[in-house]
Nucleic acid binder design. Structure first.
Length: 494
RNA sequence: GGCCACGUGGCGGAGUGGUUACGCAACGGUCUGCAAAACCGUGUACCCCGGUUCAAUUCCGGGCGUGGCCUCCA
């Protein structure tokens, strides 16, 4: 089976072959831990988790090592824990603590929530999750190399990368230096040789996190953002590796700058062989922004959005119904439909035992640049053909449990966007008393059985008025009845 | 202002130079005390204007709309 992936650098779908047949290497930009992850942050995490799972599957099949099945897959996703926004947030939330202590509190809390969130979304932990603050040594080594090779210079206690020293600069974003300068709207720092030069290292303000500086700079400082990823990918994946992923908004400047740093430091023709970027996400047709009141975190979706607490698997499935490179509009209707589809599928695969045989059609769609929408069509068709085992195996491969008890939806706190629109969500936040609806209380199985048999008795007596009344009552509790020739079955709906 | 995407039936969403996508919802039918479920059936979509072509939703150009990046935001 041939895997084809779209590469942002060459703007084409190409056959993927690992540089090293014994080790497939992938790096994805992870979160900056200053605030809870929003649903837009969830997209790359889910998309590249699916790719990780596919790569592992293909590796096991021996696709790249002549059938031996021993290829390793190394997936690195970093955690950025040194950043201006973290500093700002820490100072705001814990004004009475020393800054470094406040920062630790913010990053620990955010980091924990992030891991809880992505676990709920069914994502596997990456092979390595390096933290920026634990890789300052590697960053400084890179910076020294770049200075030695003439690609970086010291100015005013900063180290800057000289974009003019890199002929290919701008290739990923498809724009020339002249275009960038013409279009620039930012004020240029006076110490920059070229307006587009970017920071590799900068002095720390008093109280900020600080490390001894490279390049003979006396004052302590801290790294720029872009150098982190170059340093951590180098440490765990080497000078060149296979896949680098992230959101499309990272193409410029972040990934462009990573390429410049890594290629110039190692004199390599490439940093990553494939650059993959997921499309942007909007909420209810609008850009997600705190000022619009439609900012939605993963945590909120899991706890209560549009009146429901959503199972992580429904969020995951909803994400995969759109191709990863397309824009996606996150809305209640669509999420509701996703949940419903899973709910129906899970009924059919109840009680099946998993095995690793996944239909080749399913793999083929994944291998076509992760065409998950076509893959989902294939799953619908498997269900229609009553090939439930195949459906189950495919869902397992994609990271779904297939267990109905894991995707029961409950009434949640109703903060956030309502099905009708986003109006009023801020008021709800201001008046917490009004936002909490008690979690749905499901009746016990005994109670249900009792009501069902009461209804059956009424039906036998042809007391249809009473039997319909009981059915309505059960319906209100979320219990739906199915009359079959063998008696009445009941199930809890979502 | 510069660069880059996207625009498909009520909704979601693939794909293709000429043939049914698919799913959800809707509607009709079978079945049923009535429902539900199940099964069967129905819809003839591709932003606008030019061009290329025997043929364009699909390729090219322009326009309009939406969004992203150029402000360390996935």
């Amino acid at each position: 089976m041939e895997l084809k992936l779209y590469d942002t650098l060459t703007r084409e779908k190409r056959v993927f072959v690992p540089l090293d047949p014994n080790n497939v290497r992938m790096y994805v930009c992870g979160p900056t831990v200053y605030d809870f992850a929003h649903i837009g942050n969830a997209r790359p995490v889910i998309v590249f988790d699916v790719l990780f799972r596919l790569l592992r599957h293909l590796a096991k099949q021996g696709v790249w090592d002549g059938g031996k099945g021993e290829t390793k897959v190394t997936y690195v996703r970093n955690i950025t824990d040194v950043d201006d926004k973290i500093n700002a947030r820490a100072a705001e939330e814990y004004p009475d603590l020393p800054l470094n202590e406040a920062i630790r509190k913010v990053t620990e809390k955010t980091d924990k929530q992030f891991h809880d969130d992505v676990a709920a979304l069914g994502c596997l932990p990456p092979t390595v999750e390096p933290r920026a603050t634990e890789h300052i040594v590697e960053m400084k080594a890179l910076i020294e190399r770049l200075i030695a090779s003439g690609n970086a210079y010291v100015a005013d206690g900063n180290v800057l990368f000289s974009v003019r020293s890199m002929p290919d600069y701008g290739k990923l974003a498809k724009r020339s230096l002249d275009e960038m300068i013409a279009g620039a709207r930012v004020e240029v720092a006076p110490y920059k040789r070229d307006p587009m030069d970017f920071i590799l290292w900068k002095p720390s303000k008093p109280g900020e996190p600080a490390w001894p500086s490279p390049a003979g700079i006396a004052a302590p400082g801290r790294p720029g953002w872009h150098i982190e990823c170059s340093a951590m990918s180098w440490k765990y994946l080497g000078e060149m590796f296979d896949i680098h992923g992230g959101g499309i908004d990272l193409v410029f400047p972040h990934h462009e700058d990573e390429i410049a740093q890594s290629r110039c430091a190692f004199h390599t023709p490439l940093m990553a062989n494939f650059w993959m970027h997921n499309g942007f996400l909007q909420v209810e047709g609008e850009k997600m922004a705190k000022s619009l009141g439609n900012f939605v975190t993963i945590k909120e979706l899991l706890e209560g959005w549009c009146g429901y607490s959503w199972p992580g698997e429904a969020l995951r499935f909803n994400m995969l119904r759109t191709h990863y490179r397309q824009p996606i509009d996150w809305k209640f209707e669509s999420l509701d439909e996703s949940h419903k589809i899973l709910w129906e599928w899970y009924k059919d695969i109840e009680g099946l035992q998993e095995d690793s045989r996944v239909s080749t059609d399913v793999i083929a769609w994944l291998c076509d640049d992760l065409n998950t929408p076509e893959l989902i069509t294939e799953l619908h068709s498997l269900r229609k053909k009553k090939e439930f085992k195949s459906l189950y195996n495919a869902l397992q491969l994609l990271g779904f449990s297939g267990k109905r008890e894991n995707i029961i939806r409950r009434a949640g706190t109703s903060r956030g966007v309502s099905a009708a629109g986003i109006a009023g969500s801020f008021n709800a936040k201001e008046n917490p008393d009004q936002i909490t609806i008690a979690g749905e209380v499901l009746p016990s199985d005994d109670q249900i059985e009792k009501l069902v048999s009461m209804r059956s008795a009424a039906r036998v007596a042809k007391n249809y008025k009473e039997s319909d009344r009981i059915r309505d009552e059960l319906k209100k509790m979320g219990i739906v009845l199915h009359d079959t020739k063998d008696g009445t079955a009941w199930e809890k709906v979502r």
